[in-house]
Simulated assay, not measured.
Amino acid sequence: MNKADLVNVVSAQTGATKTDVSSIVDATIETIVDSVVDGKKVSILGFGSFEPRDRSARQGLNPKTGEKIAIPAKRVPTFSAGKLFKDRVQG
């Protein structure tokens, strides 16, 4: 499912126009991204949580040559699925 599919399904379920749903989806995603960029955790009950995590610098290997390379420290976004989400996926 892509964003257009999501907009179509939510529009059909709620009766709202596709334009309105698209604006709401865009605003929701933008708010989540901005919060994680600011270092905040975003929790959506029953769905999951988004948060930034810091990865430390480490050594890696170039798969082609086998030589060691330095991988710099960086901040990455993470998602943890909530219990309800996990339970529904597992059936």
Rank of each mutant, 00 (worst) to 15 (best):
F79S: 13
S80F: 05
R75G: 08
V25K: 01
L45Q: 02
I24E: 00
V25G: 00
T31L: 03
K86Y: 00
F79H: 12
A16N: 02
A16Q: 04
Q59I: 14
V37F: 07
Q59E: 14
F79P: 09
T14A: 06
G91D: 04
K40V: 04
Q59H: 12
G60Y: 14
A12P: 06
I32F: 02
L61C: 15
Q90S: 14
P52A: 15
G48L: 05
V42C: 08
R88E: 11
S11G: 12
M1W: 05
E30V: 09
T31K: 02
L61K: 14
T78Q: 09
E51V: 15
K64N: 12
S11V: 12
L61A: 12
G46D: 03
N8T: 12
D54V: 10
I24W: 00
N8Y: 04
V36W: 00
S80K: 13
L6T: 08
S43T: 05
F85G: 08
K68S: 14
A12D: 12
D54R: 07
F50N: 04
T19F: 11
V33M: 11
L6D: 02
V33T: 05
A12N: 09
S22Q: 06
G82V: 04
G91L: 14
S23V: 02
A27L: 12
D20A: 03
E67S: 15
S43A: 06
Q59S: 14
A81H: 00
K68G: 09
A57K: 07
T28S: 04
K3T: 02
K18A: 06
P63E: 01
S56V: 14
A70Y: 03
L45I: 12
I44W: 05
G15H: 03
A27V: 09
S11W: 05
G82Q: 03
F50Y: 08
D26C: 05
I29K: 00
T17D: 09
K86W: 00
A16I: 10
G15Y: 05
V33L: 11
A12T: 10
S80G: 13
A73W: 10
P77M: 07
T28D: 04
G60V: 15
L84C: 10
K18P: 01
G39I: 08
D5Q: 13
L45S: 04
S35T: 03
K83N: 11
L61G: 10
T17E: 07
R75K: 14
K64T: 13
S80N: 10
T65Q: 01
D5S: 11
A4D: 13
F85S: 08
